[in-house]
């Protein structure tokens, strides 16, 4: 997104601001249909029991969409919480908080994907 001239002259932030901004937008656009799909599906299964939810999650479309949702959701969450921490945490806890958010989001996304795959491949 940076112009070739700005890049060549070394103007602007030398850090990852553009990449962060762009990734936040891309994940946001992806999350619009994914989250609406998820909410709509949960509402459709609102009265559904365990079997109904498992049957739904075992369909190829639902399991694929769920995994993409988890990736986009926790990427977006990590980017958003990073900005909140950078804005409000000025103590030495900032670095620890940034690492905790990044690792926490990675762990949660992984746990969600593993759970989805366990459901898909369960007998």
């Amino acid at each position: 997104m940076r112009s070739p001239l700005a890049r060549a002259e070394g103007l602007g932030s030398a850090k990852g601001g553009v990449k962060h901004w762009w990734a936040e937008r891309v994940s946001a656009v992806a999350l619009v249909p994914l989250t609406v799909w998820f909410l709509g599906s949960v509402i459709a299964h609102a009265g559904g029991d365990y079997d109904a939810v498992i049957t739904w999650l075992k369909t190829p479309l639902a399991s694929l969409a769920m995994i993409v949702l988890l990736l986009a959701l926790f990427h977006h969450t990590a980017l958003g919480l990073q900005v909140v921490i950078e804005d409000y945490v000025h103590s030495d806890a900032r670095f620890a908080a940034l690492i905790a958010v990044r690792l926490g989001c990675l762990a949660l996304a992984s746990a969600g994907i593993v759970a989805t795959l366990r459901i898909v491949f369960s007998p």
């Binding site: 365990y50 939810v53 498992i54 999650l57 769920m66 988890l70 959701l73 949660l108 746990a111 969600g112 593993v114 759970a115 989805t116 366990r118 459901i119 369960s122």
Partner: peptide, 10 residues
Amino acid sequence: GLVIWLTAAA
């Protein structure tokens, strides 16, 4: 909460 719900379902 979503991950807790998915993990419980699994």
